[in-house]
Nucleic acid binder design. Structure first.
Lengths: 224, 224
DNA sequence: AGGCAGACTTGAACATGTTCAAGAAATGCC
DNA sequence: GGCATTTCTTGAACATGTTCAAGTCTGCCT
């Protein structure tokens, strides 16, 4: 129904205005300094109305994650479409991840620290984050699939998830990185990617079969 | 002055009562469910009085860390005094770390997630945490020093800090570990310690000198 | 048209972390 | 002992996240 659609569209617009306002204010003034009252006021709605669309202030962050991942995906496209070397692909995707986050450094830190709580829906391991997480892992699957790489199937299978975990480590470092332009994080990416790729390639060696199997066993145990 | 001491002692006692009450209530009911008003009431002081001793609710957590480290130190003593094998020492100290934390699993998660925020004084990298951090690193220095281990000086120097970082990773995993008795974390310790020690020992090999130097360069860059 | 159901909106009310001006208690000094 | 200073102690007041009962609007049905 066009009428129903109009109606829904209106509400959808209100929702969008609230998100836009909130994320802009978070970026400009920080997470804590931005009150729900201020968000509602600037968005032109009543305080309580924001709670009709978002169960809590934290839920607004989930929205940030979603947009963030979309931006990461877009920023990764060029390198994924042009490079075939694993190191180059991985490096490009990780640098893209930092790139799109840089404008949010400082306030992103607060957001991500909220995500550190295991019981929080914002946790990257929570069921609520499952779609975003799966999408992110799929991105690293593409990193691997588009590269020329000869490794045991057991390794290849687990690689996307491992690389995603690796990217989480980079983000964790980035959160703490106070260097100008977070250049240290960029250097960390540049210096660890070759090591990681070398390590992955080593899994081909017969002599290291025992170690490889051991590592895989640990990974599987950890995944539960 | 006995009078002055009495006075100070009284205040010190009040402070202690507040901490004890707070930590007990945190353990019994969780961090969020425990209000400052409730803590003050049970401790027998006015709400505002708690703020005379602790600038914020979070500051009470710092106290938890301090006690926690003391407990870790005590729990590590036996293995440090009896074992000389690096793997055994490291394993013992890491298991001790999990041991003493286990009773607090669930509420410790909230505490540690607060610590994830870089600007927070609770962050393990913050100036405020410096004493606790240094003490913890000193513990891992003892782990290394008491073991028979032949590795390059450059590696040995950086080992305590690296092992501390490793222990932080274990704690991070533990926080997310929902297995009964957090047995998965114990398994992670048992399975990764031999790998870590093997890796450390590999640094002796001439053939890996280039890699070792590269890793050390990264570590130094990261430390800033 | 009248009115009904559901989707949306509102602003006051509530709980909790935190601050603060005022007061009480203890200490030091004569 | 009496006064000035410092060290606590108090409870009300404030800001903010969140809830909720009540109201408004929209589209649909008869």
């Amino acid at each position: 129904m066009s009428a129903a659609e109009t109606r829904t569209a209106r509400a959808e617009a209100t929702r969008a205005v609230i998100v836009d306002t909130a994320l802009r204010m978070f970026r400009e003034q920080g997470y804590e300094a931005t009150t729900m009252r201020a968000i509602a006021r600037e968005a032109g709605v009543a305080t309580g109305n924001a709670y009709y669309y978002f169960g809590s202030k934290e839920e607004l962050i989930q929205e940030f994650y979603t947009r963030n991942h979309a931006a990461h995906l877009a920023a990764s496209r060029p390198v994924l479409d042009s490079e075939t070397d694993l190191a180059a692909r991985l490096r490009g995707v990780l640098r893209a991840l930092v790139d799109i986050n840089v404008p949010y450094h400082g306030f992103a830190a607060k957001l991500y620290s909220r995500a550190a709580e295991p019981s929080s829906p914002l946790s990257p391991f929570s069921p609520e984050s499952s779609p975003t997480r799966d999408a992110a892992i799929a991105l690293y699957a593409e990193v691997v699939d588009g590269a020329h790489l000869r490794v045991p199937a057991a390794v290849r299978e687990r690689l996307p998830e491992l690389l995603w975990l690796y990217s989480m480590g980079i983000v964790l470092f980035w959160v703490y990185d106070q260097s100008p332009g977070t250049e240290r994080t960029y250097r960390l990416v540049d210096s660890t990617v070759p090591l990681a790729v070398r390590l992955i390639r080593l899994s081909r060696l017969r002599a290291l079969g025992a170690v490889t199997r051991q590592v895989i066993a640990i990974v599987d145990d950890v995944r539960g």
